[in-house]
Amino acid sequence: MSEPIIRTKGLSFSYDENKNPSFDVREVHGVRDINISIERGEYVAVLGHNGSGKSTLAKLLNMILIPNSGDIFIDGVRITDENFTEDDVFDVRRKVGMVFQNPDNQLVATVVEEDVAFGPENLGLPREEIRRRVNSALAAVGMTEYARHAPHKLSGGQKQRIAIAGIIAMRPDVIIFDESTAMLDPLGRRDVIEIMERLNREDGITVINITHYMDEASRADRVIIVNEGEVAFDAPAREAFSNISDLHRMGLEAPQGVELMAALRDAGLDVAENVLTSEECIEALNSFLQDK
């Protein structure tokens, strides 16, 4: 098996020790002893309640934050190396792109296509290549017709698609979505999820979706649950949602179908365990109830 795209070993970070000048640190946890390994092309959801430390983890992976201890390997390169130069950091950020929560606060330019070009421009690519990447990135998020528009006139979902295009244009190996759907309406959310899954499926981009929408998490191949700065769970989605009481204890929920099955079991019905999607839930209940 090839080297995982992301691997961490005993990774720890705490905000006070670093005297981080950030404005909004009070509510966030650091992380403790994180050991995860993500393969190239995986689709991983990271769950956790507000302030559980899941965003901190993301910021460590592309060197926005520097860990207190432990190691991170990106594509086999140890990025926690003390001798890392500015160019090396640059390389890591090119490989690991990140889309944030508030679409307004990640758009830099007053014209959509110039915003998408921002990353490639920083990479120092030749003009023709930038143009090609901007066009294909805008097409990938379905925003080609808005190329010359001003971003502030777009809807939240559209802005977030532009932000994604800006990352795609850098051709990263991994894209981390840090609660990128939290501020969107259902339609905007659906668009963003569709795009992230298409990028994973068709372009083989490793997708890490940090979220607290359970329906989003249940679509991923694998779910990592972060609780109070530690990895509480790391398994395929189906298993992650099988222990409802643990989820509730961590301030989370399971998708509605899973919750329903658990509620029925609690009420003494012998319905199937191990369902994940609504479809599975329907099949299981159907066969259970048709017999009655």
Binding site: P255, Q256, A263, S278, I282, N286, L289, Q290
Partner: peptide, 24 residues
């Protein structure tokens, strides 16, 4: 809501449910 969809589909398949079929 997903649970309402589940209930609606079960009804469609001939399982006669009634009540507040939109919350868990």
């Amino acid at each position: 809501p997903a649970v309402a969809k589940i209930a609606a589909e079960l009804k469609r398949r001939g399982i006669d449910l009634s009540g507040k079929l939109y919350t868990i």
